[in-house]
Design a protein around this nucleic acid. Structure first.
Lengths: 330, 330
DNA sequence: TTGAAAGCGCTAACAG
DNA sequence: CTGTTAGCGCTTTCAA
């Protein structure tokens, strides 16, 4: 831990016998200089190991070259995928990513987002925050892109069509001969409603509808915990759609522990198509919500906004049904 | 997107009829002023909605109040957990987290880490980067804490005892009556070696040893892909230890597709105890490597270093065997 | 208890 | 082609 003060642009300028302005323009590639001068600067820079201080640069340019990303829980593969996508695009464009995990609790979120907002050029934020915070963020004067379902004037969102996703799932289940349906939802999430609606509309075709249950968190533990309540009711459902794959996996596991066969006794499905869905036993039917793509697109749109294009329309991604054995024909 | 320039400390000072120095000291709580002056400043600050510009502050204090975290893949629950733990501690201490996902490829990692390094007060970095990059990082003059196995003079690491972890797994398997062992490793990882060694030593007790196979990435896909090669060999193993739970889950799935019963025909185990390990079918035996704790401790130690305590010893966390049905008695 | 002034390291006119 | 100068918004001596 030797202090070793980094050299400044002034050190370089002095050592190369030029002005700081020259050095600045040189390292930013904004202007060419005589071969001699350029060579001298190059050498000195290497010798001194000089590198720009991004903070000082930001101060004057007003650009931090970093963006904030606020998610509810990195542990949820849906969010991890968003981080993944956003990270890749950010790196490609030489932007840094300031990540904050809100831990599924809107407790300090305004404070955290506020602190973040001052350090970045723009923000990508989960739509699962209070509407007042959404509005407040929109007022902060920095571009914000939300991911997830959100209907609000003047805010831009990137999302995957949850209505269609659930609708497809509903019709799929119906086509497999299922008759009695349940939906295990997560009301805190903005898109819970559209998923439920899509499902109900899908089932309406065959004159059916789903009974609704709720979990408190989108986790396998919660799926496991609610399972018996769903399956031990009278007139047991023979098809259960869960808010996401994590809930579905927990649910399916517990159903099997309860002695039920999946898919024979009950079909189980989720949303997201997390990597492990394929490797469940039986493999889990789900809908690919394109989480990573959401991250990519959100970042692209944000960077676009920072570059001056600020189109106001939302981006709607198409979901893709991934039918696997957990909803096999009855 | 109204520009709406944020007000500066100068605006506040002017409006309150005091000097910027006074405002600065006031908002930083470094000094008390007459009730009258304080009241005026307070009012003005609220009216103007003034908030400090952290960049300007960093420029002069030399502290960014943010730390960098470099991981190989957020999608891997092991790393997601590290982010989780680090995030929590960072927030508690009012630090920001700059995350970079290296995407399992050491291609641009020095460049990325270099860019990161200038923007943060310290770094937490995966040990799975080239040793030369480790050394180079250590020279950068900023505190760095590594997580994962790494033996290098003068660098601090936080890790979980991989030798013990694998050793426990080996002895567990042996105690369950297993006889023929295989280890599916991931050589790129620094702790692959110690896990292998621990396993072999554990098996040596009963005079056995494990045949070694390698995957190219620590993913379920790779576990799936290598499965047949491992299980269709002569003298088929009756116990397979995989580099991590993801590989194990992929492997187990494929083993079952191949018609083998887990654990009757073959026991499967992994490392990390990812959340879904419990919900696999059968539930996966694994070793809890305390990923989240690693993130917590790494961040605590880094923040400690920034506060002046820079102890040189590594932190070694204890693994915990989590025996589940995938290695049930034969 | 308060303020004036000197920068932190860098870029951006504007001159030459 | 190259240099001078004036800040970005803030903290921090040092005086008053």
């Amino acid at each position: 831990m030797q202090p070793k003060k980094p050299s400044t642009i002034r050190d370089v300028a002095a050592a190369a016998g030029v002005s700081t302005a020259t050095v600045s323009k040189f390292i930013n590639g904004q202007q060419r200089f005589s071969a001699e001068v350029e060579a001298r600067m190059k050498t000195v820079i290497e010798q001194l190991g000089y590198r720009q201080n991004p903070l000082a640069r930001s101060m004057v340019t007003g650009q931090t070259k970093s963006v904030g990303l606020a998610i509810m829980d990195v542990r949820n593969p849906h969010f991890a995928n968003i981080v993944k996508g956003a990270n890749r695009v950010a790196i490609e464009h030489d932007y840094n990513l300031l990540v904050v995990d809100l831990e599924e609790s809107p407790k300090r979120e305004q404070e955290l987002l506020g602190a973040l907002s001052r350090r970045v050029d723009g923000l990508i934020v989960s739509s699962r925050i209070p509407l007042e915070t959404v509005d407040w963020l929109a007022q902060q004067g920095k571009p914000v892109v939300f991911f997830g379902a959100i209907q609000r004037q003047g805010v831009v969102a990137v999302r995957t069509d949850g209505y269609r996703a659930a609708n497809m799932l509903g019709r799929h289940l119906a086509s497999q001969g299922r008759k009695r349906f349940a939906y295990v939802g997560f009301p805190q999430a903005r898109w819970n409603t559209e998923r439920l609606q899509g499902l109900q509309d899908g089932l309406a075709q065959i004159g059916a509808s789903a009974r609704v249950f709720d979990v408190n968190l989108p986790t396998p533990e919660e799926g496991e915990a609610i399972c018996s309540r769903v399956l031990l009711a009278d007139d047991r459902p023979d098809a259960v759609v869960c808010y996401n794959d994590l809930v579905a996996l927990g649910f399916m596991h517990e159903a099997q522990s309860l002695g039920l066969k999946v898919p024979d006794d009950v079909a189980v499905a989720g949303f997201d198509d997390i990597p492990l869905a394929r490797y469940a036993n039986p493999p889990l039917t789900t809908v690919d919500m394109q989480s990573e793509r959401q991250g990519v697109v959100a970042m692209e749109r944000l960077l676009g906004a920072l570059a001056g294009n600020w189109p106001d329309a939302d981006t709607l991604l198409e979901p893709r049904l991934v039918a696997r054995q957990s909803t096999g024909r009855q």
